[in-house]
């Protein structure tokens, strides 16, 4: 299969902190890649460089052949095609659920309102929240907010979805409802990069697991090999810690 996302030798420093020290990853279309690693290992920075919420110091990132890192890149156009889901949901609190989802399609993609609403309703049904379209974000549980955030990202009809610890802020009983939506999305063939330590999701949906430490990729493998026979000592230590 074709290379869909190419990250080539990505380097990013925050002052003296070396967040990414030459990371290269290739993701194929429809592939679900899980990124794990200790706190501060650069997982978020890597994800955030893909839609250029962080700018790399050096290295290149291509999505479907289009350069993200090129200074002249049409970054807004690229962001339309890359959906992002945050740990803290970041729903817009002054907008209803429906308006949260339709805002960008209407303002950015210039869709007409009825069409945007129709898409939003379809997506709300998909994440199991059809009855919440008129609700305000603060009236929803964390799990519901995160599912709305996923619907909001999907409304842009993205080619790729990035998830940065989407369930870390959730109470245990809500984690499953979000992971179910993500698993379904993976099954439908969405290309996904997911930072998460949910091993159930890793086994159910991930094609590949990447272990990062100190701004570098230590090891990558399919879930079964990764969990049963990790090659590196650092990976083994980390797995002991989280499993």
């Amino acid at each position: 299969m074709e290379k869909y996302i190419e990250i080539i030798d990505a380097v990013k420093n925050f002052g003296s902190v070396r967040a990414l020290q030459g990371v290269s990853i290739t993701v194929k279309k429809g592939e679900v890649v899980l990124i794990i690693g200790p706190s501060g290992s650069g997982k978020s920075t890597l994800l955030r460089s893909i839609n250029r919420l962080e700018r790399l110091d050096s290295g290149r990132i291509l999505i479907d052949g289009e350069s993200v890192t090129d200074p002249g890149a049409d970054i807004r156009h690229i962001r339309e095609e890359v959906g992002m889901v945050f740990q803290s949901f970041n729903l817009f609190p002054h907008l209803t659920v429906l308006d949260n989802i339709t805002l960008a399609p209407i303002c950015v993609l210039k869709k007409n309102k009825d069409e945007a609403i129709e898409t939003a309703r379809r997506l709300l049904a998909k994440v199991g929240l059809s009855d919440k379209e008129k609700a305000w974000p603060e009236q929803l549980s964390g799990g519901q907010q995160q599912r709305v955030a996923i619907a909001r990202a999907l409304a842009m009809n993205p080619k790729v979805m990035l998830f940065d610890e989407p369930t870390s802020a959730l109470d245990p009983e809500m984690i499953k409802e979000v992971l179910d939506v993500m698993t379904e999305l993976a099954r439908e063939g969405m290309t996904m990069l997911v930072v998460s330590h949910e091993m159930g999701f890793a086994r159910a949906a991930a094609h590949r697991i990447i272990f990062m430490d100190a701004g570098q990729i230590v090891e990558e493998a399919p879930p079964d090999t990764f969990f049963t026979s990790p090659r590196e000592e650092r990976t083994r230590k980390f797995l002991e810690h989280i499993l």
Partner: peptide, 22 residues
């Protein structure tokens, strides 16, 4: 919160649109 601006940018909004709408 900073995440509000980031969420808006991630959806493809320009900085000024994000200021105005969010």
């Amino acid at each position: 919160p900073r995440g509000q601006m980031e969420a808006a940018l991630a959806l493809g909004m320009s900085r000024s649109m994000a200021m105005r709408k969010i």
